[in-house]
Design a protein around this nucleic acid. Structure first.
Lengths: 215, 215
DNA sequence: GTCATCATGTAAGCCGTTACATGATTGC
DNA sequence: GCAATCATGTAACGGCTTACATGATGAC
């Protein structure tokens, strides 16, 4: 999961570890947040594998301006790209994704053995997929949620009390809520797919010309 | 978490590992289900610590009758208590909770550093708590969820796209849904607390006597 | 007699956390 | 110059999963 999140973020902009961690926490929620102890080793591993590489290390300036806070990463990345040594924050390692990393990202995005948290991250970066792949991702998830719902109704025996019933009901509602969400995503995906199929046939729309390689 | 779930289940009935695993899966959902590789070591650990002890080992019969499936555990436990060697399934270890185990259970139920999954299990067995403790448990959870909601609105900057926005919105809805649930539990707890306080004093009001400390 | 299921356990390994170690920069 | 924050790492440890090893029983 951490690889997916790192590659997804680095595909959008170059970042250094510390900033990466912040955006990661933002993405998956402060809770279950990734720690340095897993982030840095993960970055090292990805670098060794050639999926990311350090760019502009040690020369980069950083925006210390607190700002809205969440913008500092973008500023840092911006300055990193410019190579401007504004105030001279030191041994920071700004990472960028490689072509190999992008391939790996696409693979991870398609992985169907993903757990719940990983699925969330897949959704967060699923713009990197082709419309049809995105749709397939959502459909798989829908099937999985329906399976859980079925399991849930099948059992229901055993000791029960107020709290266990309440818990069970709440869980069911949560899954149902997830299903509604997924259904919306699926609808949107299908619409998009139909639209792009239409444009491909007689180029009505000025959009999406580049997807020659499938569909 | 596994200790809490095991002790909670064994507090209701004596069970052997295999059956325990089924009920555990039922409790926390088939997904994120506990595996034998963690269950048996956990049982061994708890036994060594004196929190559970094996009862009726090796003499016990088991109901092989498939039935509705979920009932088999209760039947097994029932027969275990009777000591009836129906057909003679062999080296099964039926565990029971000890007084020390019950103490440990109460501690785990009150632990406020519990993660999300653990909290669910705490709710499942919170009947073992005193009304006031139960209320405190729910209130803490409510505070935690509100904290997350606050974090969530604070950030919201950074790169966004359709899918990230949708994910974010869905997460927010999920937390809100959890909050509604907790609020209901809290209301019920307060009512119960007031009622028991009322009967204890001289049964005047059936409502809100216990909340001297806020509102 | 053999296959599926019930049943218990062990071992290797992954993944992630906490805690520790280090050090530069900025604000006061 | 001192504390807080930024920044990067390492080390120890824990918990859980997968896979393996074992074996009894009941159904066919």
């Amino acid at each position: 999961m951490i690889d997916l999140a790192i590659l997804g973020l680095l595909d959008e902009q170059d970042l250094h570890g510390y900033e990466l961690k912040k955006q990661l926490a933002d993405l998956v929620g402060a809770r279950s947040g990734v720690s340095f102890g897993s982030l840095y080793p993960a970055l090292a591993r990805l670098e060794k594998a050639g999926a990311v590489k350090a760019v502009e290390a040690n020369t980069v300036a950083d925006a210390v301006i607190p700002m809205t806070g969440a913008l500092s990463g973008e500023i840092a990345a911006f300055r990193a790209r410019l190579g401007r040594p504004a105030k001279g924050r030191r041994n920071k390692k700004v990472y960028g994704i490689t072509e190999l990393g992008r391939q790996r990202l696409r693979l991870l995005l398609l992985d169907d053995h993903a757990d719940d948290r990983t699925f969330s991250v897949q959704v967060a970066f699923c713009q990197n997929l082709l419309p049809a792949q995105r749709l397939a991702l959502f459909e798989r998830r829908k099937a999985e949620l329906n399976r859980r719902l079925a399991d849930r109704t099948r059992v229901s025996a055993g000791r029960t009390n107020t709290y266990r019933n309440s818990l069970r009901e709440h869980d069911t509602e949560t899954i149902t809520h997830d299903l509604v969400w997924i259904d919306n995503l699926i609808d949107a995906s299908r619409a998009e797919l139909a639209e792009s199929a239409g444009t491909q046939i007689h180029s009505l729309e000025p959009q999406t010309i580049g997807d020659s390689h499938h569909e």
